[in-house]
Design a protein around this nucleic acid. Sequence first.
DNA 1: GCCAGAGTACTCGGATAATCCATGTCCGAGTGCGTACGG
DNA 2: CCGTACGCACTCGGACATGGATTATCCGAGTACTCTGGC
Lengths: 135, 135
Amino acid sequence: MISNTRLAVAAHIVAVLASKKGESVKSRYVAGSVNTNAAFVRRILCSLTKAGIVRAEMGKSGGFKLVKDPGKITLWDLSVALGEERLFAVHKNPANPCCPVSRGMKESLGRAFSRVEKAAQAQMKRISVKELLPA
Amino acid sequence: MISNTRLAVAAHIVAVLASKKGESVKSRYVAGSVNTNAAFVRRILCSLTKAGIVRAEMGKSGGFKLVKDPGKITLWDLSVALGEERLFAVHKNPANPCCPVSRGMKESLGRAFSRVEKAAQAQMKRISVKELLPA
DNA sequence: GCCAGAGTACTCGGATAATCCATGTCCGAGTGCGTACGG
DNA sequence: CCGTACGCACTCGGACATGGATTATCCGAGTACTCTGGC
């Protein structure tokens, strides 16, 4: 069902930044915690920057800082920042106009999936990054 | 978040079968409605067969028949049949033992994602294929 | 006319190929820090 | 001693491979229908 791990990695990244209490953290350090490469981390941090969740700082002693309170950053915020609000994909093949089922299927599926996504969204809004940190 | 369209296609397939009221339908016909190739449809139908939702019939006038009542087949049933119960993926890179955040992250994320998935699951169980059919 | 048997056409099922997306590797552009020099 | 200018090391950002997943194409195996021949 899932192919990418961006949301999980984004949550991990923000958790690391939160554990550093607003200090500047380098992408390389975060990559070490996630056990991946720094460029991948930066690509996600770029999205988070555009969403106003973190701030990038250039130069020798650069890095990323958390802008918002970790208790106020939810999984939903991260999903939106990554542009991954949708949980389900509908096949994009054109509908067969000869088949009544096919004609209405995309809209029906869209409605059904939206209902499910709305329920998921409500839960995601209730989970903050702070809850992911060790006690 | 999603890359494959199997759940959507499975729902479409079952809807087509339901519209035929238990008659035998060929994979080729279904493929025409979904606008894809017949083998792809058959692979999904194979999963649905193993789950006892449809039955395959060989031979010249073969095809697939719906076994269960469309009103009793939910999106969740289809997800289980396809083996796609999980909505989120956690990165599988090993945790960095030096980082306390990293050590606990997978478990924290697993718990958080489970909560979201449980909410989604509850909704998916409330949506049957019958609701996807045209009025 | 009825039954048996072979042939055939059509199906499903699985193996193989092409395509697309996510991730990893690499290099260029830019900025803050450190040092050296001049005042 | 203090301020300024230069060089540098280190950062982020984006372009280019690579690997895996998803979907499409193809071929083999098998079965129900059909037609023919015999009784």
